[in-house]
């Protein structure tokens, strides 16, 4: 959630990218409306979703990164499983009579472009087993991670690979 506009290498989004972005927001907002309100007053929901999509496309900063919906499903699966393990892991450590933790800080250089990929990375690190994104450097490259035990750092690399795959980023 931490970085958006502060980086110097931001190019404005093209018209096509803004349209794609708008359509994606529109679909999500409309689904949310249907979920909360059902089918009555559908027209109002349509208008509200369109307004939200327009606003989102207008305000988008930098280039939105294209992502593939079927990859998002796999990513969600990976994330769910990891956060499940994270919960079980930390619960076990908290309940263990000997408190099996060895907390430490460790810095990780993020090898992802600014915008959505990096934001997603910083946001999801906190829910992996044993890692917590504690701080981000001024330029948004170095992520300071707090780990419950040094071994937990290994999963950060895997997460980064997953995020790169989701946004089809070549490395």
């Amino acid at each position: 959630m931490a970085d958006s506009a502060a980086n110097n290498a931001i190019r404005p989004a093209t018209r096509k990218q803004r349209w794609t972005w708008a359509v994606q927001i529109f679909v999500v907002l409309l689904l949310l409306w249907l979920l909360l309100n059902g089918l009555d007053r559908f027209l109002a929901g349509l208008l509200a979703a369109a307004a939200g999509a327009g606003l989102g496309a207008w305000l988008v900063s930098g280039q939105p990164h294209p992502w593939k919906p079927h990859r998002l499903i796999w990513f969600a699966g990976f994330f769910l499983w990891e956060s499940f393990k994270g919960g079980v892991d930390v619960a076990w450590r908290a309940m263990h009579p000997g408190l099996k933790i060895n907390p430490c800080f460790s810095s990780h250089c993020i090898d992802l472009p600014t915008g959505q990929p990096r934001t997603l990375m910083v946001a999801t690190v906190s829910l992996l087993p044993g890692t917590l994104s504690a701080d981000l450097s001024e330029d948004g490259r170095d992520l300071e991670i707090h780990a419950l035990m040094p071994e937990a750092m290994a999963s950060v690399e895997r997460l980064e690979a997953w995020v790169a795959w989701l946004f089809s980023i070549e490395s």
């Binding site: 956060s83 619960a91 908290a94 408190l99 907390p103 906190s126 829910l127 504690a134």
Partner: peptide, 24 residues
């Protein structure tokens, strides 16, 4: 989550306990 909040030694570790355990 609450046990971790009370037992863990520093703010950061307590954050681990609270966010991950409570969300699960």
């Amino acid at each position: 989550g609450t046990v971790g909040l009370l037992r863990f030694p520093d703010v950061y570790s307590r954050l681990h306990a609270l966010t991950k355990a409570d969300n699960l």
